[in-house]
Design a protein around this nucleic acid. Structure first.
Lengths: 141, 141
DNA sequence: TATTAAATAGGAATAGTTCTTATTTAAGAT
DNA sequence: ATCTTAAATAAGAACTATTCCTATTTAATA
């Protein structure tokens, strides 16, 4: 059932359906935490012990090109990936380096309106992302 | 005169005044373009041909720790540095990868007010940064 | 089932950054 | 002005994340 879901997703993007790609998609779907390539590998290896690291990177690159996945900017210089494509922002925890999604349509509205009114000269905006930096309350960690 | 300025800045942060640190500060002051460590080295080497790469990295790390410099998140996995500490946002050019500063106090006000009203549960906000993604008009490039 | 372009494994290569250690130096004490 | 010492630096090795290379395998289609 879910396997099929991933297959369809790949077909939709005109990609051949391979076990490796399916596995990476599955990993992205389950690792909600903006995983690094390495975390994805850890997950994928469970069921695909022979997968090569290069394949994971290649696959992720392909997904990014096809717009199925986004890269997430971090301050540590390791790439992280995000399978959620709906417009959202990120909460960055300074202490734990955890990155969490933040959805807020009202905020998006405000931003869009603001930049419609106040254009930036010589710059065409395609997207706006907030990095909300701070710390999670200790209780929740 | 300016050399002295850098010296004082270092003293203010309780750092020994060395030619290497002064040179890196000078580079950061002149390379407005959110330079990478490599660009900084290129600049510094002009007057300090013997400076070691490691020293530049170490120095930058020290400056970041002391809060004299910020790291800038990028999507390419290379670290970039920013000597401007005033609250500001960044314009990311998708085509050229240029990163430019964007100052807008009105926008900051709006954001601060918005998040005062609408708190994020379990998260204490320390800073908010906008990544404004798009392209510069070709004329200006 | 055969064909073929595309995908993968495996490992080497690269780039950016950090680490290690012997040597040098800035800054305070004498 | 010189001595002392902890801190900073040079030089290059080591490490890590990522990309590249190529022979082999495979998915999709005929």
């Amino acid at each position: 059932m879910t396997k099929e879901k991933y297959g369809n997703k790949l077909k939709d993007s005109n990609l051949k359906v391979t076990p490796q790609r399916t596995a990476v998609l599955e990993a992205l779907d389950n690792l909600k935490d903006h995983p690094t390539a390495d975390k994805i590998k850890e997950y994928v290896v469970k069921n695909n012990p022979n997968i090569a690291v290069g394949t994971i990177y290649k696959t992720l690159e392909t997904f990014v090109e096809k717009g199925m996945v986004n890269r997430v900017k971090t301050e540590e210089g390791v790439m992280r990936y995000d399978a959620i494509l709906d417009r959202h922002h990120h909460l960055y925890c300074e202490e734990t380096k955890r990155i969490e999604d933040f959805f807020d349509d009202e905020l998006n509205e405000i931003l869009i309106k603001y930049f419609e009114k106040k254009k930036i000269s010589n710059f065409a905006i395609k997207d706006i992302k907030l990095q909300i930096i701070g710390t999670f309350d200790s209780k929740k960690n």
